[in-house]
Design a protein around this nucleic acid. Structure first.
Lengths: 113, 113
DNA sequence: ATAGGGCGCTACGAAAAAAGTAGCAAGGAA
DNA sequence: TTCCTTGCTACTTTTTTCGTAGCGCCCTAT
C-alpha cells in the first residue's frame, strides 16, 4: 500500500489535513470534521437558509468560522449560494442522505450517555 | 424552540461543544468532528489495533491528540482497550455501520474534486 | 431622502485544540 | 541484562475556533 495516489487538494490549493494516504474516506473525514461542517449540511437538509439563520442554528457559531466552512463546502460543490440563501447541491443532498442514518442512531445513543 | 433540554455532557463532566440545543445529532457531530475521531472508528473496523498502529494509520497523528480521542471514545462506550489493542464495542460497530456508506460515496466523490 | 433593519461578510485579539518532538515506565523476548 | 515494543505523558509551536465589533449593501417605512 501507500501507492503514489495524487495527494488530494481542495480547490484553492489547500492540501487535505493529515492522513497523507489519499484514501477518499480520509479526505471526506478531513472535510467533515471541521467545526460545523456536518451541522451545516444537516441544517440545510430541509431547505435553504440564510447566513444568519445558519449561524443561529449552529449554536451561534462565529461568523468567521461559519463563513470559512461555507466557502469550503462551496469549493467542493456540496452547497451553493443562490437566492433564498445557502442550499445543498445535488451532490450535497446525496451526501446528506448517507449522513441521515446517524440522526436516528444518535437519538438512541445520546440517552445512554 | 430552545426548550430546556438537559445539556448533554460527556462522562467526565465535559460539556458538549457548541450547539446548546441538545439535539442528539449535534451531540454526535460534536464528538465525531474532533480530529481523528471518525478515522479511529474507521481503522478499528477491521479488527483491533495497537496504539502505535492507529497512530501510523492516522497519518502519524500526534500521540497526545490520539490519546485524548481514545479516552473520549472509551468514555462514550464506542471503543474499548483489551488485549490485542483497541477495538470497537458492539455500540461502536453499530455506529460504524452507519458510517460505512460514506466510504463508497467518498470514492466516487473525491475524483471529482 | 433618509433613517432604520436585516443581510452577507471581514477584522482582530483571545482562547482552545492539534501538531510535532522527546522521552519514560512497563512488559516481553533473547 | 540488554534490547525491543507498547502505551502513554510533557512540553513547545502552530492552527483552528471563538467572541465581539462593525462595514457596505439592499429594502422598506417614514
Amino acid at each position: 500500500m501507500d501507492t503514489d495516489v495524487p495527494k488530494p487538494v481542495l480547490k484553492g490549493g489547500k492540501p487535505v489535513r493529515g492522513s497523507t494516504t489519499g484514501q477518499p474516506i480520509m479526505v471526506l473525514f478531513d472535510l467533515l470534521s471541521r467545526r460545523w461542517a456536518m451541522g451545516v449540511l444537516w441544517n440545510l437538509a430541509d431547505g435553504p437558509r440564510t447566513f444568519r439563520d445558519l449561524q443561529a442554528q449552529c449554536g451561534s457559531a462565529s461568523p468567521s468560522v461559519l463563513n470559512t466552512r461555507l466557502k469550503e463546502l462551496r469549493d467542493v460543490g456540496l452547497i451553493e449560494n443562490g437566492k433564498g440563501g445557502y442550499a445543498l447541491t445535488a451532490t450535497g443532498r446525496d451526501l446528506f442522505e448517507r449522513l441521515e442514518p446517524l440522526g436516528d442512531w444518535a437519538m438512541e445513543w445520546v440517552p445512554t450517555l
